[in-house]
Amino acid sequence: MAFDLHRCAVAGDAEELLLERVYPAPASTLRSPFQRDRERIVQSRAFRRLAGKTQVFTSRASDHFRSRLTHTIEVAQIARAVAAALGLNEDLAETLALVHDIGHPPFGHAGERALDECLRRHGRRFDHNLHALRIVEHFEQRYAAHRGLNLTLGVREGIIKHSRDYNVSEHPELAPYFLDQRPPLEAQLIDQADEIAYLTADLDDGVESGLLEIGHICENVEILARCYRIVEQQHAGVEEKFLFHEALQLMQNILTDDLIRNTRDNARAIGAESLADIRMHPTRLALFSPQVEAERLQEKRYLYETLYTCDALEVEHDKAEEVVTALFNFWINDPEELPQAYFDEVQDEGLARVVADYIAGMTDTFIFLQYAQIKRTVRR
């Protein structure tokens, strides 16, 4: 009999601390609190904007490449499957997966690096997890009685802690989020589900783009090569691209199954019988096994060396830095050109943070329109 993690799951009853909201909300007989959070996130403007934000390739390159939105949906599928297999709270895991990238700026990680570099010059930093929290607590305005989405404490904690830990001495504003404790397993598994989704998808999109070759991948990525050999034996004579797609699916299943098995084994090893046991353990438990972790790192290094830093994408990254930096400097030097709602925030938040907030919310298309507009303004 498999070790049961149900007792370590985040509960869904009305007495659970993690179900608390900042503002009172009427109870629903049809939906759990985390289901309601999921729907609030999916209906938010920030979530919709993920469709226009780069994952690896910009939407201008092809309609078939993943956007932040399609990547997010893939992460949610994996997260819910893992949570179900472990007996955890599936609604919470799915909700955290859907919100995990909501704080990313345009142009993917290149845009994030550029925005962070701009803020560094003003003694600030950009962190997409913390920005996501600002989005759901402040920027989304859908309710008459308050700002923000009024999400449960459990979802807000997971937004900031799913991929890293924060120190209360450096972030005293995050003190309500149990910074001296590990997050629940539902939050811990999101980072690994994210890894599974993008490691699979980026190989797929890399081959689709013509920047990666299937044979070269098999020569350098052992886990994919092993999967390819298996499907090749099962489907002799089938065209290479179809074998590759089958191999990617098998690889995703191997990674997912290993995460489920190893997380369960880790919890069993510490004798976890409650959520408190998970929280008080000094390290996270939702991890891959050592062998699979080594293969994951090998694939990740391969993607960095051959795809993420290739000449074709470096051109895109350089353009992202140019656009973000130019817009940031423009509004720093002329803040009255900001939209009124953002200009009104300057006194409370500081100009640099407000400018970064404005840029971070943009889609790739919108930021290019803004860039073209300021270039015309400067020329005049």
Rank of each mutant, 00 (worst) to 15 (best):
R40K: 10
R40Q: 11
R40Y: 09
R40W: 07
R40E: 14
R40N: 05
I41G: 02
V42P: 05
V42G: 07
V42T: 11
V42C: 08
Q43W: 03
Q43N: 15
Q43P: 02
S44K: 08
R45L: 10
A46H: 14
A46S: 14
A46K: 06
A46Y: 06
A46R: 10
A46N: 08
F47S: 09
F47C: 12
F47Y: 15
F47M: 12
F47W: 15
R48W: 03
R49N: 14
R49F: 08
L50E: 10
L50Y: 02
A51F: 03
A51M: 08
K53T: 07
K53G: 06
K53S: 05
T54V: 13
Q55Y: 02
Q55S: 06
Q55P: 00
V56W: 08
V56K: 13
V56T: 12
V56L: 13
F57D: 12
F57I: 10
T58E: 15
S59K: 14
S59D: 12
S59G: 10
S59E: 15
R60A: 10
R60T: 10
R60E: 15
R60H: 13
A61H: 14
A61Q: 15
A61M: 12
A61R: 15
D63H: 13
H64Y: 07
H64G: 11
H64S: 15
F65Q: 11
R66G: 00
R66K: 07
R66I: 00
S67A: 08
S67F: 01
S67K: 06
R68K: 09
R68T: 03
R68M: 15
R68C: 13
R68E: 05
R68W: 01
L69Y: 01
L69V: 04
L69Q: 12
L69I: 05
T70C: 04
T70M: 04
H71G: 09
H71Q: 09
T72N: 04
T72Q: 04
T72A: 06
I73G: 01
I73E: 04
I73Y: 01
E74W: 00
V75F: 00
V75S: 00
A76W: 00
A76R: 01
Q77C: 06
Q77G: 11
Q77R: 08
I78L: 09
I78G: 00
I78K: 01
I78Q: 02
A79D: 02
A79F: 00
R80F: 00
R80M: 04
A81K: 12
V82A: 08
V82R: 05
A83V: 07
A84C: 06
A84H: 14
A84I: 09
A84G: 06
A85E: 15
A85K: 13
L86I: 12
L86D: 04
G87C: 08
G87T: 11
G87D: 14
L88Y: 09
L88V: 13
L88G: 06
N89F: 01
N89S: 11
N89V: 08
N89C: 08
E90Q: 14
E90P: 05
D91K: 02
D91Y: 05
L92E: 13
L92T: 15
A93C: 11
A93P: 12
A93S: 14
E94M: 05
T95R: 04
L96T: 12
L96M: 11
L96H: 03
L96N: 04
L96D: 10
A97S: 08
L98Y: 06
L98F: 03
V99W: 02
V99D: 10
